[in-house]
Nucleic acid binder design. Structure first.
Lengths: 187, 187
DNA sequence: AAAACCATGTAAATTGTTACATGATTGC
DNA sequence: GCAATCATGTAACAATTTACATGGTTTT
């Protein structure tokens, strides 16, 4: 049982999902490829944590829908009592920022402009996501899902993503403001 | 040449460092253990990216100090022209947040209280770090290092770390405010 | 018909962590 | 003496990514 395994159980604790769906939904919190998810789901099934049902579809290819078992829920409850390990962030841009002074400011500006664009797109997607969660849980303006609601966790995470995204945008804009604009070079 | 390799070159582009120092300094941006760093440095030396000199110390064990070569600088300059790949963040707390509703609010509060503490300690360390960088680069209040200064990159990254840390603290405090406080259970 | 998305899997390679190993030096 | 920090390395294991493989369905 590694972290990704618990992550899959965590998603399955609210609704049954296919491996493909799990792969898409876990991305924002714990990036993983389908080649990691499928064998892990098979292992969780062997361990009795989840059950699997083949669902035939007419409009799309058939799929295997996984559901969490009591044993899986128990594993989650146990897991929640141990402190979360420190978050791990790996950002190539940070490493590049460290040696920026070795290239033309224009080259550096380009790096941060691209990242700013990345965060602006992310913000856009997030706002839409939050709107859709609000609709599904039938919430009024500024109203929170209750702690018992399966959307409570999703809501606080979306809020974190939103706050982080805005901070990152602010930071990128500040960096672009402090990197000198290219002077006309020697004619 | 993987990202960690470029990261080491990036750090070496400002000053020569031992493998041990590199290991400590790269942690905030790209976590890596010494077991990954030492063999990689040996490879970079074989590739002619860095040179190594044995430095004898009387107060501490002897060490190998690595310096970047022209080939290493050229590799960095090339690397800076390609866009940085998307940052990767893996946070177990996010996965736990998703299935929180399956346990008592007190259990959840504990998770976020621990994380809040983690970020508060980090903020403390960051503030001291920023102060020391300001001293080394002899900066007045609110003054930035120039783009050419080797501290420019460090400064903008410290600023990012500071902004992110504050956002995370704010978020943790908000989460602790919205998780219901344990009601007296059935007597 | 080609591209895009849905869907599931395995194999190989790379990256990263933990454990094994060793040893100097300093402060308690 | 013992723990902590400094210092370097290798081996085994676990996690992750990339590539290989296949095939249905929908939209352009």
């Amino acid at each position: 049982m590694n972290t990704l395994a618990y992550g899959l159980l965590s998603l399955l604790s609210h609704s049954s999902l296919s491996g493909y769906d799990l792969m898409l939904r876990i991305q924002p919190f714990w990036p993983a490829k389908h080649s990691q998810i499928y064998p892990l789901l098979a292992r969780l099934e062997r361990n009795g944590m989840v059950s699997c049902e083949l669902v035939q579809q007419s409009d799309k290819p058939d799929k295997k829908v996984y559901s969490i078992n009591d044993k899986g829920i128990a594993a989650l409850q146990e897991w929640l009592t141990v402190p979360a390990s420190d978050p791990v962030m790996r950002d190539e841009l940070m490493l590049k920022a460290f040696c920026m002074s070795h290239v033309d400011p224009a080259v550096s500006r380009e790096l941060f402009a691209a990242r700013l664009e990345h965060y602006r797109n992310k913000l856009e997607r997030l706002c839409q996501k939050i709107k859709s969660v609000r609709q599904v849980d039938e919430l009024e303006e500024d109203q929170m899902p209750s702690y018992q609601s399966p959307y409570f966790g999703a809501y606080i995470m979306l809020n974190k993503a939103l706050m982080s995204c805005r901070t990152n945008i602010e930071w990128c804009e500040w960096v672009l403001a402090v990197i000198p604009v290219e002077e006309a070079s020697v004619e």
